[in-house]
Amino acid sequence: MSLINKVKNIFADKDPLEESNTQVADSSPPASAESSEKPAENFPDQPQERMTINLPVMKQSSSAQQSDEILIKAQPSVGNDQCVFMVNRTLLEGYSWYFANFESAAESPLAEALFSLEDVETVLVLESTLTITRKDKTIVDWKPLAFEVGAAVRKVLEEGSPLIAEKIIADLPAEDVIRKGIQENIDAEVNPGVAGHGGHIVLKSVKGNTVTIQMGGGCQGCSAADLTLKQGIHGSFRKAVPMVGAILDETDHSAGVNPYF
């Protein structure tokens, strides 16, 4: 029995599990922009709109963090454009750092080791994770490079030397300075740019040099939001405030006015 028939039975005050003779072609339309415009006509008993609470997913406890052995897990992104490496060691505490190229890796042994791998394009260090993009965007299989990255990270960690140049952290501006620079950039460049698509960006927090934003309006749930974030907002923020590290998006793209449209 289809879900649609069960739902129809509910609205017809019948047993939801009772088979309906109604053809699927006559059934209620799926949730769409059109159907949601006239809920009262299609579903007279449709309940009032409720506020949806989005809880964070509880993390499974793991004993890996306490292990003496260096454990590294790789997780390619949905679009295979980047790969996140999770290490059971803190790589950079309280801050994050974006290495845009080999030159920027000077005096940072971890980044130097990674850029010595032929296909590594950029490296982002955040707490105990590394996010790496590759030069050859046509390769979708991350495994060969991921194993090279794992070996390089393990070697640097075993050497025990500082991972990131001390000068980087010493020269970081205060959070207030970063917040002011990012907010000015949002107001002057980013929001006027996305306003044409009915979107807007809100600066949620600055922690160390890690920036968290939220996308709203037409950006929320937009299929191009990831592209806008990585190719538009990231570049604009880094140009305006070069010391910014990770840029996190805490938008719930499954909610909003037009999710997935």
Binding site: T52, I72, K73, Q75, V78, M86, F147, A151
Partner: peptide, 14 residues
């Protein structure tokens, strides 16, 4: 309250 989460991306040890 939201119940849905997309399937987790595959993870492998390196």
């Amino acid at each position: 309250v939201n119940l849905w989460q997309d399937p987790p991306q595959p993870v492998f040890d390196v």
